[in-house]
Design a protein around this nucleic acid. Structure first.
Lengths: 340, 340
DNA sequence: TTGTACGCGTTATCAG
DNA sequence: CTGATAACGCGTACAA
């Protein structure tokens, strides 16, 4: 049996409650007592028992992470390790533990979150995505359980704290960049249309075209659920058009890789035959062939601020919702070329 | 206040202990009572409180995951999402939760694990790596705390359950493949020499050469801690030799990408000027230019079996240690060429 | 500034 | 088969 608060109390000639107060650094305990108790704790190698602590204090000091479903390849995106690294950083600083939702299908994940929340395994939850008609979010909302998300909420944007990039502006900016290079036949390759990030970027893309007086061509806009495979699929659709685009805005670097690969198999070259802009700035984007012009969305910061946000919500449930916009940087490399 | 076991007991006209037994599906409770209690639980929407449950039962039903330190880029390796997916699968099936160690530096991680273990946040731990002189392992060992690891233990191989590939044979096989293609000047690019996976693969490489009667050239063996950056570094070292190798065995696909990128910048082509074999078979390896010949190590299975292993250990601490070897497949693609 | 007494929601032990 | 009763280890009003 590990050593408990009672053992410490006995050894320090005080009562358990005093020890408890020392742990909490209660100001009403004399420094002398604190010193003595702490010394005893040190000597005995005492570690508070979280199971008991949590029961008594009704908190867990842990935050739950919810991923999109892992059956699709989304999960293999280096995006996730990187957000988690950001979350982990903040969690460590604030002494929160991190718990993962398990489950592969949407159904399983939903059940997992319900379980996690109802049984009191976590104090709050971060959704690592934002999509329309999300049952998980609906559940959290209904329970009024503390949560935040990475991405723009699909409704009640003002009512819930979240962390996001300005995806509209980012997409508009890259599209304008392609316009400046002389491209007018610009395509857009998005992910699932239920993801907010797809919608925002598409709007930015469309707005840039409109402002340039270029009509939007529906055929130039395709959506794919998977990343690498989706990229392959997308480009074959686009190339089957009578007038093929000369440039593409692609919402994920992995998707862009899929596209570039397919193009090369067909004997087409990037950027000579077609220009491509991606999003995310993965480690690989710099060394790919050609190096990818992309938008660095600062994934680490997204995670870091999401964790910070959530912890604030947990500690202060009645504060107004906060929206954190993490800046992005367009990173010009070698996958775009002036149209001659 | 959520609804507790007492509420259920009252509504079902039984005592809390009976309800508890129904939850545990105790065989000594009559089916009639079980049915009644279960119905009441349903009606009231009762969910067991894990905080209390864990305190009373002295377990947590959660397993802890320990990563190598995240300051290096290792963490951006798609390897991790994939192992975690495997672990998550098994965890979900067995109703275990997953907790993550936080912390960036080795020191922080160590402290995090100590905390996790001492305060009773987890029932067992999976080390997602295996290295020499690992303080974390030493700690677990000393505490006799249930744990398993992915990779070969650096000592007491027979005494601890673990999940691994046969990295020796895999490396030997790919080296032999290069020999068959006519290469004799074959280099080896490994990760940190403190990682068991590096050592095993290096031995496989060396054994293949020895068996072919080719002397091992120390200069052809380089080690780098980082992945992509390391690849860049490694290749510039190798190219500075008077006699440069014509083929390389590289322990990680990401490293291979770094190498290929650097070569291309220098005007050298893979596989025309130099052949390369990687390890891991990431999603990207298939679509990279050229597509990478690599070893598929079945990362998902590694995670899946590690979780299974750990749970068995937790439930049966005295069983002998088990070693699970996950099969690998060499996947020939386009990054190797016959030497003329 | 410290001690007392009780509660947190379950499980486990011992009767019956 | 079921019911009391006592842990599990800690936090916290209330009292002193």
């Amino acid at each position: 049996m590990a050593i408990t608060i009672k053992d410490v109390a006995k050894a320090a000639n005080v009562t358990p409650s005093t020890v408890s107060r020392v742990i909490a650094d209660n100001p009403r305990i004399s420094n002398k007592t604190k010193r003595k108790v702490r010394q005893v704790m040190e000597e005995l190698g005492y570690q508070p028992n979280y199971k008991a602590r949590n029961l008594a204090s009704r908190t867990t000091q842990t935050i739950g992470l919810v991923m999109p479903n892992s059956t699709d390849q989304v999960f293999q995106n280096p995006f996730f390790p990187e957000v988690i690294r950001g979350i982990s950083k903040m969690a460590h600083m604030t002494e929160y533990a991190i718990q993962f939702s398990t489950g592969e299908t949407e159904e399983e994940i939903y059940d997992g979150v319900v379980q996690m929340v109802q049984s009191g395994r976590v104090d709050g939850v971060i959704l690592l995505y934002s999509r329309m008609n999300d049952r998980v979010r609906a559940f959290l909302e209904e329970k009024a359980f503390p949560y935040t998300m990475i991405g723009k909420p699909s409704y009640d944007v003002e009512k819930i704290s979240h962390v996001d990039n300005d995806n509209f502006s980012a997409a508009k900016e890259v599209t304008e960049y392609l316009l400046q290079l002389g491209h007018t036949k610009i395509g857009f390759v998005g992910g699932s249309t239920s993801l907010m990030v797809t919608l925002d970027r598409q709007q930015g893309y469309e707005t840039a075209l409109k402002e340039a007086g270029i009509p939007i061509c529906e055929e130039y806009i395709v959506h794919e659920d998977f990343l690498i495979e989706g990229g392959k699929q997308a480009i074959s659709e686009l190339l089957s058009l009578k007038e093929t685009p000369t440039a593409l805005v692609v919402v994920d670097d992995l998707m862009a890789f899929g596209i570039i690969n397919t193009l090369e198999k067909m004997g087409l070259r990037v950027p000579d035959d077609i220009s491509i802009v991606g999003f995310n700035n993965l480690l690989l984007s710099e060394i790919s062939q050609p190096p990818l012009t992309t938008v660095n969305i600062n994934i680490f910061d997204l995670g870091y601020h999401a964790a910070k946000n959530l912890i604030e919500i947990i500690n202060n449930p009645d504060e107004p919702a906060k929206r954190i916009i993490v800046p992005y940087q367009m990173t010009v490399r070698g996958s775009c070329k002036k149209l001659i």
